[in-house]
Design a protein around this nucleic acid. Structure first.
Lengths: 341, 341
DNA sequence: GTGAAAGCGCTAACAA
DNA sequence: TTGTTAGCGCTTTCAC
């Protein structure tokens, strides 16, 4: 393993000074044949500029952290792609960190931010409390949040209106003839859980609501497995109460897939016996049987916006994107449309 | 935004030298009250050691790159979790880079490795050619590969026997009564595509093979969408040839989900009309309808092994893990088991 | 046990 | 245009 080639060695090889070498390779103001000589020397030696040296000097790492609750959720994977697509052409790499839903590990990620290992952080937290906001505002590096708006605290945020998104799903189901709805939510002390709950409560309390609501069942997590379990609990409750549920609004696609599975395990057909809607419009939701009716929250667009906001904060972009809010949009597919009535 | 606190300022505040300050915080050989004073000063000032400074001095970044073909594939997400689980307690962060399946971008990732921005790379390439191997062996940083064994080139590799894994699926289908099988593979110029193809060809050529093979259909990619398209092409071919296919072995779970979807679009029931098996044993495969029979390749275990191998290469671990091969294991679920015959 | 000083690799300000 | 030099923040020798 030949030891690493430094700029110093390139300079020696080219027979010129260190400064000229640096200028010839990156900077400005070097004569054509200086550039030529240095390039040749660098190529012969296989020179690669050392990242730590540049970082220390330039005070920039060209690394952006993407901190999410759960990288297993396809929504975050899609956002990651979108963010990567925007930042990569500007020479930034992405560091992914999974903060989980525990406040403690989120705090650990945040407090490690000021060691300068990244130039900025795009964070999509599940839970936001006072301590979290305090840490976030105390941070030295640019922060862009995805989710609940922290603009009041001076933190750039990309948000969406998931509450009215849930309203879209409720209206669609009622229009499709459903008369007995329930809501399957994730933990309600999370930002999405809280917003989506509000959306459901508002929708079923609206004057035009022509059906009955059997209320909400809360799953332990926004995952398929938690969805299966909670859906069974919900359906058991309905049976016990003598209610014949004909639709479940799920707080996201993973939970909706769980509902479909639980329904199947009980011999219920989706959508004929039970209509189901999801949220996030994930690719997997489009591919499962039946394909999920889902409320798109513009995952890719939100990721892009967050990345563009970050570029603006880093001074890489002349002007920040105009609006940083993405509206919900209903995608009707098989899981909510009865074959015939 | 108060500018960053440096060790120098902490030293001044504590009224001691720079060296003593450093020793008191991290190193050895500092008196109790020196530690006390320095700690207090650091706390008051909110000192955070600067990453670039340490990196430059220590020649370590505490960053490991995880380079995968497609982060959208749940297999890689699962590996990422596993790797993170092993490396995180040792103070390492993970940088994820999606190299795609183009040789060019893989080359770009590899050749950017020698700038010292990471301490090592765990790479799971889809395609491996001579140039790729050359770049990989020329790299200054420790490399651990997941996939095709590169041990012959001096590169630590975690491998599995996906070929005989496909054999497990074929045997299972024949035992379950299937008499006309086909293989739905991903691109065959990739490592997994090549290995799995070999596994299928070997299995159907074995003396004990009691069924007919309708051959292989190659999808453009290892994704659900590509699987849907290729499955339709395969089923069309079978119809044209007057063959009544009763089983499809898919090269991974995503393709298998595509097969299930295509079958459904044609009014075929899975598993009654068509039995389907996948590979990788992903969570989503377990949750879809019908739940996928799949060959586990020990994704989590392979990720852990790769991480442990990396720790050993970094000198963080006394001894490397004994074996770095994970055997395939068949998980029988609904997609291949006919309700009744 | 503590302080002084060198130097990791690089860029930019200043001189020539 | 080119060379010289300082210094980014840190750890670790080397004297004392």
């Amino acid at each position: 393993m030949s030891s690493r080639v430094t700029l110093h060695e390139v300079a020696k090889r080219a027979g010129v000074s260190l400064g000229s070498t640096s200028r010839a390779l990156h900077g400005t103001g070097a004569s054509p044949d200086m550039v030529e000589r240095v390039r040749a020397a660098a190529a012969e030696l296989g020179y690669r500029p050392n990242a730590a040296g540049r970082q220390l000097r330039l005070q920039r790492t060209h690394l952006i952290e993407f901190a999410v609750a759960d990288i297993g959720n396809p929504v975050y994977v899609e956002m990651l792609s979108a963010i990567h697509g925007v930042l990569s052409p500007h020479g930034y790499r992405i560091v992914v960190s999974s903060i989980g839903d525990a406040a403690a590990s989120a705090a650990r990620v945040l407090s490690s931010l000021d060691d300068g290992h990244v130039d900025g952080v795009i964070i999509s937290p599940l839970r936001v409390d006072a301590q979290f906001i305090e840490l976030l505002t105390a941070t030295q590096v640019p922060v862009v949040a995805i989710g609940r708006s922290l603009r009041a605290h001076g933190i750039e945020t990309v948000s969406t209106d998931s509450a009215s998104g849930i309203g879209l799903a409720v209206t669609h189901l009622v229009d499709a003839g459903c008369r007995s709805l329930a809501f399957l939510n994730g933990p309600t002390d999370t930002t999405p859980g809280e917003h989506r709950q509000r959306g459901y409560d508002t929708a079923v309390a609206a004057p035009g609501f022509q059906a009955a609501s059997f209320g909400t069942q809360v799953a332990d997590d926004f995952t398929v497995a938690a969805g299966v379990e909670a859906a069974h609990a919900l359906l058991d409750r309905a049976v016990a109460a003598g209610v014949r549920l004909d639709a479940v609004v799920a707080a996201n696609d993973l939970l909706a897939i769980g509902v479909v599975r639980a329904a199947r395990e009980r011999g219920l057909s989706v959508p004929d016996d039970l209509a189901v809607t999801g949220m996030d419009d994930t690719e997997i939701g489009r591919m499962v049987q039946p394909a999920l009716t889902s409320v798109s929250l513009g995952t890719t667009r939100r990721g892009q916006l967050a990345a563009e906001l970050m570029l603006a904060r880093l001074g890489e972009s002349p002007e920040p994107p105009q609006l940083a809010t993405v509206g919900p949009e209903l995608k009707v597919r098989e899981s909510s449309v009865r074959s015939e009535l």
